[in-house]
Every structure is written in structure tokens, then in C-alpha cells.
Simulated scan of single mutants.
Amino acid sequence: MNKVDNNFNGKITLAITGASGSAYALRLIECLIAANYQLYILCSSAGRIVLDTEVGIKLPASPEAAGKFLSDKYQAKDNQITVFGKEQWFSPIASGSAAPKTMVVCPCTTGTMAAICHGMSDNLIERAADVVIKERGQLILMIRETPYSTLHLQNMLSLSQQGVTIMPASPGFYHKAESITDLIDFMVGRVLDHLGIEQNIMPRWGYNANN
């Protein structure tokens, strides 16, 4: 049984890969910290490049330095954010006896999705996702690609049949978005909904005063 620090509401693993949409991950981190969740964070080398390219954030390659950087940026509590490297096989997220039962890959490349689908486990992101699937936990993949090939769609179907939530980064427009931030919040709000975390960053359908 996973032990949850009494100072936090739960533990969530968040993986950031090299798909476009790094701003989604940063907003999700912000919201999860505000909701008092403890985060285990993984970021691929391509993910760090995209963070720099898209939002100008140079996330340190060292897990310890990256953890301090994110903790300072989001004013996290002690031990609220832990960053792991891609080959830290002795980290808790590598084992079903210790890993959180909840994981989000945001954004998720189709390559990462394929590796998860076929149980490759060649790095810690893939292994952590494999653990969540085998332990019958909750895994959300925020895929970002267009168009989807037949192979992409087949992998999505296979993962969905295994209980994985496939959530493409496809924001809606019914809330009359006025900024990129509004579009980011739409998707992050949907992720929070699926995690069962109360959120008010995205207006509900039918509750928009401007309708």
C-alpha cells in the first residue's frame, strides 16, 4: 500500500515529453501544487528542449537542480516536488510496490505513446507508465500530434482498451477563449476533472454567462 505524506492530498507522477505543448505541463504543475499534491516529475531531453523553445524555460538537466528550480518557481512545500532522471531505476515510480497509482504524460509524443503501448520500458517515463497500467491505476496521455496516422490510432485504441485515458491536446472554443492562456486552461481543467481534483479555471458547459 502506498504511504501518502499526511501533509499532502496524494501523489501524482507527471511526465513531460518532447511534444509541443509544454505550457500545458507548467500550468498543470502550478494547479497540482496549489491543490496540495506531491509530484514526481520526469522530463525527457526533448522535453527540456521544447520547454526552452516554446516558453523560454531552461530546465536543468540534473534532477536535483530541476527539482529545486521547479520548487522555487511554484513556491512548493518541502518534498512536494521530486524530479527523477530517465535511468533512476531505484526511484519509487519504477516499482508497483511504491509508485503512485496516478500518472499524467503532458504533453505526450506519439513515440512515447507507442513505447508505452508496447511495454518497452527503455527509460523511466516508459517504465513508470507501464507500472501504472499493470497496477490498474489511472494513466492519462495528453497526445499532441496532427494528423494522426493509422498506427497512432491503433496505439490509442490498444491503450484505451487497457484503461488508459487518451486526451489529445484539443481545446474547445465554446468558452469564448480570449487568449492562449484560456486555451491552456481548458485542457488543464479537463485533466484535473479526470483526476478528480476540484478546479475553477475552466467554465463548465452551460454555465458560461456569455452564452
Rank of each mutant, 00 (worst) to 15 (best):
G67K: 06
G85H: 03
Q75F: 09
Q88K: 01
S91I: 05
V83Y: 02
G85C: 07
K73H: 03
A65S: 13
F84H: 08
F69V: 02
F69D: 05
G96M: 11
S91T: 07
N79M: 09
T82V: 05
Y74N: 02
Q75K: 15
A65F: 13
G96T: 10
S71H: 00
N79L: 04
P63C: 13
Q75P: 03
N79V: 06
F84G: 04
L70I: 08
S71K: 07
K73R: 13
I81S: 03
G85E: 04
A76I: 06
I93Y: 02
A65I: 05
L70F: 07
I81L: 06
K68E: 06
A76S: 11
Q75H: 13
I81D: 06
T82W: 00
Q88D: 08
E64F: 11
P92S: 00
S91P: 01
N79E: 11
K86T: 07
Y74D: 04
S91Q: 02
K68Q: 10
A66P: 00
I81F: 05
Q88G: 02
T82S: 06
D72T: 07
A76T: 03
I81H: 05
K73T: 02
W89F: 15
E87M: 08
S62N: 15
Q75M: 06
D78C: 09
D72L: 08
Q88S: 03
F90I: 15
Q80G: 09
G96E: 11
Y74W: 13
K77Q: 15
G67M: 01
S71N: 02
S95T: 14
A65W: 05
K77I: 09
S95E: 15
Q75G: 05
N79H: 12
Y74M: 01
E87C: 09
P92T: 00
T82F: 00
K73F: 03
A66Y: 00
